[in-house]
Every structure is written in C-alpha cells, then in structure tokens.
Simulated scan of single mutants.
Amino acid sequence: MSCPLPFPPAEEQLQILSFLNHETARIDALVEEQQRLIELLKEKRQAVISHAVTKGLDPDVPMKDSGVEWLGEVPAHWNVVKFKYLIAEFEQGWSPQCDGDQAETLDEWGVLKVGCVNYGVFDPTENKRLPDNLEPRPELSIRKDDLLISRANTRDLVGSAAHVPMDYPKLMASDKIFVVRLHQRICRSRYAVVYLFGKGVRHQIELQATGASSSMLNIGQGAIRELWIPLPPDSEQDRIVHELEKREADFAALEQETVRHMRILNERRSALISAAVTGKIDVRGWQADQQSKQPEILMAAETRATYG
C-alpha cells in the first residue's frame, strides 16, 4: 500500500524546517508558561488556605504564640489542640478482592478506592463493586460528616482528606483509607479538610510518610492524631470554610481557563505543522527575525493579553 507525500525541493524543505523550529518553539514556550501558571495557582491556593486556617479572616484580630514552631502565631481567641482530642472514632477500612467494575447504583455494595479523596473533594464513583460471594460489612459504611483520609498514596496525595456530605449505606472504606469521626460541635469535618490541605500541615504529614517507593507511601494513625490544629469557634470555622469555597471556585475557573489555552496552543501547533508541510502556508520568503503573520502564531499575543 502506497501513501503519496508532498515532496518540495531540498531548499524549500530546509526553509520549512527553519520556520517550524522557530514557530513551534514559540508555541512550546507559551505552553510552558501556562504550565508554570498552573503550578503558581496551586501554590497560591495552598497559601490562601494556610493563612485562613492559621490566621483567620480578620487581619486586625489580636494574635498569640501558638506554642508550635511551625504554626507560629494564631488569633488570641483560638485554641490550639492535638487532633486526637477532637476524634470520636478512628477506623480503617477493608480491602477484599473486588471486581474491576464500579458499583453503579446506591443499591450495590462497593469498596471505596483511595482516589475518592484526592484533592479534597469526595468522589463516591471511585469505588469497586463488592463481589456477590462476599458478605458486606455494614459497620464500615461511611456516614454524613465522616472525614476520610488516604493512608497510602504518592507523596503529594498521602494524607489527602475529604468530607462526606451524606450517608452512603452501601459504600465501605478500603484499608487504604482512615475513617475519622470528629466531635462536630468542636471541629467541623469540612474545616478539618481545608486545614489538612494547608502547606505547613502537608509538610508535617509528608515527614511522617514511610515506604520503599515514592509511588506508594504510608502514614500511621499517629501522623493524624498527633497533628496540632488551631481551632476557632464553630461559627468562625463555618465562615472560613465558606470563604475558602468561594476562593476555590475562583482558582478552579482560572485553572480551567489555563488548561483550555494549553489545549488550543497544542491544537494550533499541530495545525501549523500540518499546514507548513502540505504547502497551505507559503514560507519561502519567511525570515526568523520578522513577525509571523500566520493566524496560528497570533495565539501567542492572545494568550499573553489574557494573562498579562
């Protein structure tokens, strides 16, 4: 089977290669800028969370020394306690040999995978269906306001936490997930989730993580129980969570827009290459020091204008 190929003269081939090397490098540089922007957004998000859960929302509130070096000062009216004093129950799940399929309805028993808590949002679809020949363990079913924490994962995800918003009577935690039930009148689960995402706390958790491979590290219960947590009054916890959820929506929108621009840049890169090698763009008179007039390249200016 033969496939016809456009075959320009050698001199024109070199001109096409020079053009594409120059212009794709410009697009690649813009893609790298977008990737750096995503990393900066992640760092900014973590910094905003850390500040809110250690300094509060009022910049004029009196402060005091927390007594914990890595926490620094906290609002004077907050308590600073260890996590273990907030815990009513601390359980670990069960990992039977499950089917590869997902439990698709609330009537099917399933075992949650560790990915159900990634990035602070509970995803009940991250589960495996319990085989019919195995007896479920209803005592491991997750409930409204449970705090789920990954016990084993990669370095950046071990210790990830999520709040369960409702009862799931037929979903059970796996043994890679801690199920923590807090005294809700003292510490809201949603507040604990955002606190566990803060930079200082993440550092403390990662220090406790052990394992031979960076692709699967483990933490023990003590890594969570012994954590210090600054604790505002419950009404202030709710305000902090509400404010952070609004900020999170802004960060998510910016990240989605950045990903969209990366996708467009990559699509235009492919289109540019295709157009150049098929003769749809005449590059015979092109020089590297002249501004490209091709619409694909003008995407660079559009991207810079959007993000400054």
Rank of each mutant, 00 (worst) to 15 (best):
S235K: 15
S235T: 12
S235L: 06
E236A: 00
E236C: 00
Q237P: 05
Q237T: 02
Q237L: 02
Q237E: 02
D238E: 15
D238V: 08
D238R: 15
R239G: 03
R239E: 09
R239A: 07
R239T: 11
I240Q: 05
I240E: 01
V241A: 00
V241H: 00
H242T: 12
H242Q: 13
H242I: 00
H242K: 15
E243F: 00
E243K: 06
E245D: 14
E245A: 08
E245V: 04
E245I: 03
K246S: 06
K246V: 03
R247N: 05
E248M: 00
A249Y: 07
D250M: 08
F251N: 10
F251V: 09
A252M: 06
A252R: 14
A252C: 08
A252F: 00
A253T: 12
A253C: 09
A253S: 13
A253E: 13
L254G: 10
L254C: 11
L254Q: 14
E255H: 05
E255V: 02
E255N: 07
E255W: 03
E255A: 03
Q256F: 00
E257Q: 14
E257I: 03
E257C: 04
E257V: 03
T258R: 04
T258W: 01
T258Q: 05
T258C: 10
V259P: 14
V259G: 12
V259F: 06
V259N: 15
R260C: 02
H261F: 01
H261Y: 05
H261A: 02
H261Q: 10
M262S: 12
I264S: 11
L265P: 08
N266K: 14
E267I: 02
R268S: 06
R268G: 02
R269Q: 05
R269I: 01
R269L: 01
S270C: 10
S270Y: 05
A271I: 06
A271H: 12
A271N: 14
L272W: 04
L272Y: 01
I273C: 10
I273V: 15
I273A: 08
I273S: 11
I273M: 11
I273P: 14
S274R: 15
S274N: 15
S274I: 05
A276R: 04
A276H: 03
V277A: 07
V277F: 05
T278I: 11
T278G: 15
T278Y: 09
G279R: 08
G279E: 04
G279S: 06
K280E: 09
K280N: 11
